[in-house]
């Protein structure tokens, strides 16, 4: 390119192709998601993390991630209610200390509601501490960004939950069809009720990976020490969430059982 600047005897002359190539550098912010949120959660999480850095996309993605999480938890709730009821009507067994959720009573939706509301409400309860932990570690983030990351972790967990649900149903069918001793049936039921927490590990991993990427917003001189603190704080928050969630689910389920017996 013969620009007017060349007349000023400038020393530097970069090839246009090099500079044009730099325009499409991988560091550039993406224009938008080319795939659905679920597809990105499964196949291209780095791209989703990249989108979640942009406040405009955070606003757009929060309802979508919430929709994915709700859909996954509703599917789980319905299937687990079905399994529990099938075992109850087949063997007359309902686990002790677990509130009833019978399909021929008003309590039919209690399990689904308790898990849906509990898992998401626990996330809401833990959000301020997550934001605080982020600030404490020196990451440049906002409450909106933290919410988006937490919902991404939850949506990833919900997708994983839907993925392992068919495997659980296949195992639970054996308890329905074949006569089994009570401890085995209890084991299958406890396994079923703790499935969201097992799948939640994957959500925690996704959350961890996504949030650790924000380490690059910490100034270089403090990155090493603060990065270590950040990783520990994310793990601490995941632990806190894991403790709060069962309590929240159980309290809600009990309260719903009193309201809708």
């Amino acid at each position: 390119m013969n620009s007017v600047l060349d007349r000023d005897r400038l020393v530097l002359s970069l090839a246009d192709s090099d500079a044009a190539g730099a325009k499409a550098s991988p560091g550039a912010p993406p224009a938008g998601p080319s795939a659905s949120v679920v597809e990105m959660l499964l196949k291209d999480r780095p791209a989703l993390d990249c989108l979640l850095r942009d406040p405009a996309w955070q606003r757009r993605l929060i309802p979508r991630l919430l929709a994915v999480a709700v859909a996954g938890f509703v599917a789980y709730g319905l299937v687990t209610t079905l399994v529990l009821n099938a075992i109850y009507f087949e063997h007359g067994y309902w686990p002790a200390a677990v509130p009833r959720s019978l399909w021929n009573r008003p309590s039919a939706g209690n399990l689904t509601l308790a898990y849906c509301l509990g898992l998401i409400a626990a996330n809401g309860v833990c959000l301020p501490s997550f934001y605080f932990y982020g600030l404490l570690s020196g990451v440049k983030t906002t409450m909106l960004g933290v919410t988006a990351h937490a919902l991404k972790g939850m949506a990833a967990g919900a997708v994983m939950l839907v993925g392992i649900l068919p495997v659980y149903v296949a195992l639970a069918l054996s308890a329905i069809v074949f006569p089994m001793p009570e401890p085995f049936v209890t084991l299958w039921l406890v396994l079923g009720l703790s499935l969201p927490f097992i799948a939640g590990f994957w959500g925690a991993v996704c959350l961890y990976r996504g949030f650790v990427c924000l380490e690059d917003t910490i100034p270089v001189v403090r990155r090493e020490s603060r990065g270590c603190l950040l990783r520990r704080l994310i793990l601490a928050w995941s632990g806190c969430y894991t403790c709060v969630t069962p309590l929240m689910v159980y309290t809600l389920w009990n309260s719903l059982a009193r309201l809708l017996p």
Binding site: L66, I120, V125
Partner: peptide, 9 residues
């Protein structure tokens, strides 16, 4: 149902 998640938004 999940208004605490919409507050930051």
């Amino acid at each position: 149902l999940f208004w605490p998640l919409y507050l930051p938004l």
